[in-house]
Structure formats: structure tokens, C-alpha cells
Design a protein around this nucleic acid. Structure first.
Lengths: 358, 358
DNA sequence: GGAGGTAATGCAATCGCTTACATGAAAAGA
DNA sequence: TCTTTTCATGTAAGCGATTGCATTACCTCC
């Protein structure tokens, strides 16, 4: 049986109140007494019961982190950033992974984090009004990544800026026929980021005096496969683009795969630029818009620390800069772009090639 | 102010004991009363205080998950697997990311999860005897991934089997000069997996009557860059290998990058096989040994559920199968392997090419 | 119709802390 | 020297549930 504060009190020959104060480093405890308490606790290898402590004090020492998909590169990086800061301040991290729709719903109807955390960090979730009200009703500080929610702390990148930079980069290379692989209408949940990026794409084209062609905007989910088929669709146009801006690196990877399977290469046949600077982007030599990922997590956690200590400061909003990283998949537009209507070369089809051992 | 059980009791005109029983679905509550309590709770939008509940009952409803690196693909996948199962059983997930050495140490000296969780899941950590004793002293069921710890539940793949399959695959393709990129002595923490894989590599070679050549074993950390330089080192040998088994897909990616930059390709010049079936492996058409990643997480969580409900069953150990996935980077050995002593073609150097926008 | 059983509910102790308030002693000020 | 502060410590009332035990009412069965 683990020792309780009473045991420590008896051993140090003081009251439990004094033990509590001594252990938490509060003032008004004499050096001698504190020393005695610390030794007693040490000898009994005592540690406070977090639940009793929370119950009595009302603080939980825990921050809830709500993530749409832990297993995606982006979110796991942000999570690591959050963790490092919380950890350094002895706050626990209660993870809530909303994967599918049902878990998402359940989360908002049951509010399982209510009374369980001192603060909340929400990553990139599209929140309905009802949902953000539900969160607000928890009456704890909330920091949100991506979407902007009234009354919440907020960290994000400037998506319009980043997307504009990407498209401008292509225009500067002489491209005029520029496609976009977008997640805009593709996602049922209604993340706002894709819409902002899409809007930036259109705006920059317009500013450059390039006519808008809806055929050049192809929607898909944020995955490699969807990026691949979007690229296939673009290449099948009567007049295919000479450059493509993919909403995310993942989609860009898919686009590159399609090019490769059709015997084409970037940037000789088509320039490709992505968004994120995923760890694989460097490997594939993909030009992209980099955003500081783990850093955003750290910032969110710092905001929470401020909110928790500072008292009633106003929530802040911080926008972190993106950066164009020029690698090998973008290049100058050719004078006379080649026609692409070759028959696709079959790529590897894992299912057929796979062998099962043991 | 959130409603307490007293409020509900008053509203439903019963005692708090009855409320407690009704809400938790215990027997010995009449249908009418239960109905009344449920409605009262609903109307007050009451939810139990997890801390009070834990304090009174001794159960926390929380499982601690200790991860070496949340931000690595492998662990984030496992984590997602764990989460999905725990979530389905209304257990909370307290995440503990040991990143660097200092956090690791602190974890074992302070035991911050003691009294805080009903069970523990530990991913792939090398544990000293003192450390595993410290864990055991928490007196909760523990499930461990990878390393085998006495008294703990356990999930792992058969690393010897997987590595053997990889090396045999290369031998079957006619290769005789086979290199290995290993993490064995590279990691200071002493993960055991690399050692097992290395041993399998040596054993299979010996069984095939191939002489052991220490030059063909190149150590490095589990990263793309280290894989890349390991491959460079292999290629600089007087007699370079015709095939390489990389301990992990990440390292294999690095190896492929080196090949590419030197103007070589897999499998024409060198066959490459990895381990893991990382999401990028398919993209790069990498032959590899696949292991079910998220599934291992689910299994761990299931073991914990068993431990928590079943009472005092003996901990089980489950070994999940690996699978050889043949893709495009391995092929038949050439009769007369080419000499590689060409000057490396400079690859992209992001730092020089990078531009900073805004 | 009384003994014995069972189902529904209440009472109150308990879990292990925190903290407002009370107390007493020592230091400071008059 | 006597009052006033200040500092260290103790007392005890919560915090919000859970749960063993007691109680009551209602059946059932001989």
C-alpha cells in the first residue's frame, strides 16, 4: 500500500497541512521542518495522490489535447512540440484522438474532458457553433491551432500568404497554365484551410492576368492516392497544366508518383510544388512551402501556460511565417510544352507482387 | 458552476448513493428511480467528477502510455491503435513522451504516473532492471511492446524471422555479397531489436555458406541521413555489396537517396530491402518486411482490457507475423556487377537553394 | 399469519489531499 | 515592558464521489 500524507505527517511529527505546504514549496515553513518532511517523504517513497489533490484544490495539472488524427505526420509533430513544453512544466497530457466521425460526435455530446483538465488544446478541428460553445462551457482556457475561435488562444500559419507564395513561385518561373490539387470540397468535415488556399490560388492567378479555368482545380482528400488520381486527371486534360500546386505534400507525393508512372518527370514535364515540408519532401526533392510544425505545438502549449498562470489576460493570436523551400521539382516553363498523351506505364501493383512469408 | 451529485440527488429526490448506482447502471435500482435520476442528471447536464470518483473508488479510468518518440511514424501508428481500443472502452489515455535522455531519467526517478493510472503501456523501451522494477512497483498491469519484461503482458513481432526472410529474399535472388545497414551499436539506449536483426542477418549468411565480412555491416541511427551515409560507406568499399538489407525503411530511404545521387538505381545496380513497410515505402517502391503497426497497438490495449477485467490471469505474450512485400527495389543479381567508383553527383542542398519568403 | 427472502433505498464513513482560519511563539516597535 | 507584527504550525471543514451496512417494504411459502 502506498504511503499517504498522514504517514508522512506522523513520521515527520507535524500536521498534514505542514506536509502539504512543505512538499509544494510554499512559504511559511521553516527550513528545519521542510527538511524533516522531505526526508520522511523520501524514506516512505511517498508521492501525492493526484486525484485527492485535484479534488481538494480544483486544479488537475492536466491539459487535454484533442487531435483529429494522431497517426498523421503533421499532428504527431505538433503533439511532440506540445508535449515538450507541457512536460517541462510538469503538466500531464491527456490525449483525445478523434479519428472517425462517431468518436468526434461522442466527444461533443459526452464532453469526457469536462472537469478533467485545466486547459484544452485543439488541433485544427472545424468546429460548429454548437461545438465551440460546448467547449467554452468547460470554462477552461482553450488554445486552437488553425481555425480561429472567439475567446480562444490561437496559433496558425498565414495560409493565404503561403499559398500565394507557392503560386507566385510558379508564375515567376514562367508558367501560365497552373493547376491546383485542392482538398477544398473534398473533406466532409469542413476544414477551412483548403478554402483559404484555394482562394489565394485564384487571386494570384487573377493578379497575374491569367484566366481562371475550373478544369485546372481538382479536388481530393489529403492523401497520396488522391493526389495521384488528381494528377492523372490533370494530365488527361486537352491542354494539361505545365505546373501544379498541391495543397499538401502528401498530395504532391501522389502527383509525383503519377508522373513517374506515366514516364514523365518533374520539373522537365510538369513542375510540382507542395505545402508543409513533410519529412519525405526532402527525400523526394520536392519544392514546397515549409511551415514550422513542432514549433506551433510549442507555441500552443506556451499560450496555455500563460493562460494558466497569467490569470485573466486576453487570449493572443500568433501567426507563424511560412517559407518557400525551392528544391528540384519546380523549374522554368518550357517554350513548347510536350503533349502528354502517352499510354501510362503500369506502376508496381503491390497486391499482385506481394508474397506472404510464414 | 458544474452540478454535483448532490444537486442531482435533490432534484431526483433520492440519496446520492442511489444516484451513483443509477448512473453507473448497477443493479438494485428500480426502473422508475433510474429514469428519474437520468432525467435529473440530463437536465442539470451533470457529469461525474472523475477525480472524486477515482479517489473514492480507487480506479482512475486512465491508462498511461509511455512512448519514446511520438513524432515518429511507427509510434504514432501504434498510438492510434491503442487509442482506438481504449476509447471504445471509455478509458482515458495519458501520454508520456520520453524524448530525450533527461525526460527519460526524470520519468523513472519521479514516477509521475504512479497512482495516476490503472495500467501502463510501454512502447519499445529498453529497460534497465532498476527501471522495470520501478514500473512493477506501481502495482498495475503493464503491457510492453517489443522488449520482453518478466510479469508484463507483451506484444511483438518475430524480429529474427523477419530479418531472416529479408536476407533470404536477397540470397534467393542470387546475391552473395549482401550488406546490412544496422542500428545495432548505434543507439546508446540499447534497444534490443537491432541486435536480434543483426544476429539473424549473420546466421542466414552463414547458413548459405557466405563468409562473414565485417565491412559489410555499417552502423547508424534510425534515420534517413544515417541510412544515406551508411550506403555511401558501403559503396566506397573496394568490393561493394550487390544487395543491402536496411534495418528500417527510414534507413533504406536514405540508402536509395545515396544511390540516386550517385547516378545508380535499385535494383539495377544495388538491390535494397527495408523493414517496417512505412507509408512512404510504397511510394518509393521499396521492397520491405511489413509489420502490422496499428494492430500491435490494438493488441496491447486489448491485453490491458483483459488484465483490468479478467482479474488475475497470467500475462500473455503475442507475436504477430511479418510479411515480405516484394516491390521494385530488389532484383536478380547481375553476373558481373559494375564498378561504382564514379564521382558522386551533387544532390540538392536545401540550405543553398532555399529562399525565405516574408 | 409469521418466518425468511429479496429488492430498493438511505446513512454515513471513507478516499487523500488543500486551505481558510485559529493559535501560539518569537520578533519588532513603542 | 507591553503591544503589535510576523512567522510557523495546527485544526478541521471541505472537495465529490463510492460503498459496506442498515433499514424498510414487499413477497413467498409453509
Amino acid at each position: 500500500m502506498a504511503a499517504s500524507i498522514m504517514d508522512v505527517a506522523r513520521r515527520a511529527e507535524v500536521s498534514t497541512a505542514t506536509v502539504s505546504r512543505a512538499l509544494r514549496g510554499l512559504p511559511n515553513v521553516s527550513a528545519a521542518t521542510r527538511e524533516r518532511v522531505l526526508r520522511a517523504a523520501e524514506e516512505l517513497s511517498y508521492s501525492v495522490s493526484p486525484h485527492a489533490s485535484s479534488l481538494a484544490s480544483g486544479r488537475t495539472g492536466t491539459v487535454g489535447v484533442v487531435v483529429p488524427f494522431v497517426n498523421r505526420w503533421f499532428y504527431s509533430q505538433v503533439l511532440a512540440g506540445i508535449d515538450s513544453v507541457l512536460r517541462a512544466h510538469d503538466l500531464d497530457l491527456l490525449l483525445y484522438n478523434l479519428g472517425d466521425e462517431r468518436v468526434h460526435e461522442r466527444f461533443f455530446t459526452r464532453m469526457p474532458l469536462r472537469r478533467r483538465v485545466d486547459a484544452l488544446i485543439v488541433l485544427n478541428l472545424p468546429l460548429s457553433t454548437a461545438e465551440s460553445e460546448a467547449l467554452a462551457s468547460m470554462e477552461v482556457p482553450i488554445a486552437v491551432l488553425g481555425t480561429r475561435v472567439p475567446g480562444c488562444w490561437h496559433v496558425s500559419i498565414d495560409n493565404a500568404e503561403g499559398a500565394s507564395t507557392a503560386v507566385r513561385h510558379l508564375i515567376n518561373l514562367g508558367h501560365r497554365r497552373i493547376g491546383m490539387i485542392t482538398a477544398a470540397p473534398g473533406d466532409p468535415r469542413g476544414f477551412t484551410t483548403p478554402i483559404v488556399r484555394q482562394h489565394a490560388y485564384r487571386t494570384v492567378l487573377a493578379q497575374a492576368g491569367i484566366a481562371y479555368d475550373p478544369d485546372l482545380e481538382v479536388p481530393g482528400h489529403l492523401s497520396i492516392d488522391e493526389g495521384a488520381s488528381a494528377m492523372a486527371q490533370l494530365l488527361s486534360l486537352p491542354e494539361p497544366p505545365t505546373a501544379v500546386f498541391a495543397e499538401s505534400d502528401q498530395m504532391a507525393f501522389g502527383a509525383l508518383r503519377t508522373l513517374g508512372r506515366m514516364g514523365l518527370t518533374a520539373p522537365d514535364d510538369v513542375s510540382v510544388i507542395g505545402f508543409d515540408d513533410h519529412e519525405t519532401a526532402e527525400l523526394l526533392d520536392l519544392t514546397t512551402i515549409a511551415q514550422p510544425v513542432a514549433h506551433q505545438g510549442e507555441l500552443l502549449a506556451r499560450q496555455i501556460l500563460d493562460a494558466l498562470s497569467g490569470g485573466d489576460e486576453e487570449p493572443t493570436r500568433v501567426v507563424v511565417p511560412t517559407r518557400l523551400v525551392v528544391r528540384g521539382t519546380t523549374g522554368a516553363a518550357r517554350e513548347h510544352p510536350p503533349r502528354y498523351h502517352s499510354t501510362p506505364r503500369p506502376g508496381p501493383e503491390p497486391d499482385q507482387h506481394s508474397t506472404t512469408a510464414r
